[in-house]
Every structure is written in C-alpha cells, then in structure tokens.
C-alpha cells in the first residue's frame, strides 16, 4: 500500500500547479481549468486522509462527491459568464476585464 505521504505530496504538487495556472494564464477558460486542478487536488487530499485516518474511511469520499458536485455547478456558471463576457467584449482574456478599479 502506498503511504499517505505520497498522496499528500501529489495533492500538494497538483494544487501548486493549479495555482500557477490561475496566476499565469490570461484566458478565462484556462484559468477555470486550473481551478479544476486545484479542486481535484483538494478532493484527493480529503479522500486520502479519510482512507488512512478515518475509522469510517468513507467521509472523505462523501466530501469528494460534494466537491465534484459544487465544481460542476461552478464550471457551468463560470463558463456561462465567460460566454456572456465574450459576446460583450469579443475576448476571453481576464486581464482585459479591468473596470473594477479606481
């Protein structure tokens, strides 16, 4: 059995890669994809912890189900916003959406 540290390290690396994507990418859909990576990292973390440390071993899986559900909802809404934005500005670059300032 692969020890828990491996899973946690993998999850951490995955999360960091997601963070890099969110910070570096300027296309809104790529940013969303990076967020998906981060969410998956978190879900994996939950499941790993649950399997190794929860006597029930199952709570983590349930939380992961919720994470996946919420992620699906979030992706649906976010993509709708992106499409809307694209229709308005003919671009999906988030750094062009800079009206929220002084």
């Amino acid at each position: 059995m692969v020890p828990v540290e491996n899973y946690l390290a993998l999850s951490g690396i995955l999360f960091a890669i997601g963070v890099y994507g969110v910070l570096a990418r300027r296309n809104a859909i790529l940013v969303l994809m990076s967020i998906e990576l981060m969410l998956n990292a978190v879900a994996l973390n939950f499941v790993a912890f649950a399997v190794f440390m929860d006597p029930e071993q199952i709570t983590g899986a349930v939380v992961a189900v919720f994470v996946i559900t919420v992620a699906a909802a979030e992706v649906g809404l976010a993509l709708a916003i992106v499409i809307r934005y694209f229709r308005m500005r003919a671009t999906s670059n988030i750094d062009e959406a800079a009206a929220l300032k002084w």
């Binding site: 963070v19 969110v22 910070l23 570096a24 300027r26 988030i94 750094d95 959406a97 800079a98 009206a99 929220l100 300032k101 002084w102």
Partner: peptide, 17 residues
C-alpha cells in the same frame, strides 16, 4: 496607493497566494 488596485483579477489572485 490606488495604483495598487489594477482591477486585474490575476493580480488579486497573486496577492492572495
């Protein structure tokens, strides 16, 4: 200090990180 507020989301995300 208002120039800190770029209005660009990646900058804010960077600050959070």
């Amino acid at each position: 200090l208002k120039h800190i507020q770029t209005g660009k989301v990646p900058n804010y995300a960077m600050a959070i990180t």
